[in-house]
Amino acid sequence: MHVKGLMFDPYNNAYIVVLRDEESSDMLPIWVGKSEAGAISMSLENVTPPRPMTHDFMKSFLDAYNAKVISVVITDLTEHTYFAKVHLMYEDSEYTVDARPSDAIALALRSHAPVFANNSVISKQSSEELEQWLENLKPEDFGKLDS
C-alpha cells in the first residue's frame, strides 16, 4: 500500500495516516499520535532534521549491522487497535518483529520498504472504523488542521 497522506482527526484529537492500494483503491486509515504523525510527515516531505529523530536513529541502528527492512505489514485490527510487523533481513535470515503501525510506517518510509496490509484488516476496517468516524464528524470539525 502507498502512504497517501496524513489528516488531522479533530474528533479524536489524533492524526490519521491514510494508506491506499493503488490497484484496488482500498483505503486504510490508521490513527496515530502527534509525535508519530510528525515522524511520518517528515519522511513524506523529505525533511532531513539537523539531528536524527527517533526513527532515523532506529534506521541507523539497523544500518550499523547491515540489517535491512524488507517490508512492513499491517497484520491485524482488534478493538480499534492496529497491529503491525516489521520484516528484517539480516545475514541471510529473516526476522519478524512486532511493532505499532506508526513506528512500522515511519521506518518503512525511511528504508524505502513497501507497506502491506492483510486483506482481513482492510475488510474489517471498512465495515466499522471509517463509517463510525464519518458519522461522528461534524461540519465544524473541518478546518482545524493547525491545532
Partner: peptide
Amino acid sequence: LVKSFAEHL
C-alpha cells in the same frame, strides 16, 4: 521496538 530489534538480531 529498537530494543526488540537488538534482541532479535
